[in-house]
Simulated scan of single mutants.
Amino acid sequence: MNTLYFTAKEVAVMLGVSKGKAYGIIKELNCDLEKEGYLVVAGKVPRAYFASKYYGGIEGNLSVNLNETAGSECQPEM
């Protein structure tokens, strides 16, 4: 399903960060949107806005297959 928003899990996979870090990134992006007068959804970020901030506006095929990336979170080095 192609939604208007990315979730924290999708952002984490795309950027290679933890889900907690992804929530922080989303919070920062949503704060910027609120300052510009937009309504936001907590814990999600509009796909178009995310693309403009992280990929220079290239929306293309920004999608994540969460089934293929299960368990791919960074593991601490030993």
Rank of each mutant, 00 (worst) to 15 (best):
V40H: 00
A48P: 12
I25R: 01
E73D: 07
K35R: 14
K27L: 05
A22K: 02
V45R: 04
K44W: 05
A42T: 09
K53A: 02
S63T: 15
Y54L: 00
E77L: 15
N67S: 13
E73M: 08
T3Y: 10
T69D: 03
T7V: 05
V45M: 06
T69M: 15
N67V: 12
Y49S: 10
S72Q: 11
S52E: 15
R47P: 06
S52R: 15
K9Y: 00
Y54V: 01
K27M: 08
L62P: 02
E28G: 00
R47W: 06
F50E: 10
G60H: 12
G16S: 03
L62K: 11
I26H: 05
E36H: 08
T3L: 12
Q75I: 13
Y49V: 13
K53V: 00
K9Q: 13
G57E: 10
F6K: 04
L66W: 09
Q75K: 11
C74P: 00
Y23E: 09
M1Q: 08
A70M: 14
L39K: 15
P46I: 10
N2T: 10
C74A: 08
K44V: 13
E28W: 00
N65Y: 13
L33H: 05
G57D: 12
P76T: 02
Q75G: 04
M1W: 09
P46R: 15
T69P: 02
Y5E: 09
E34W: 07
R47T: 04
T69K: 09
K19G: 03
L62E: 07
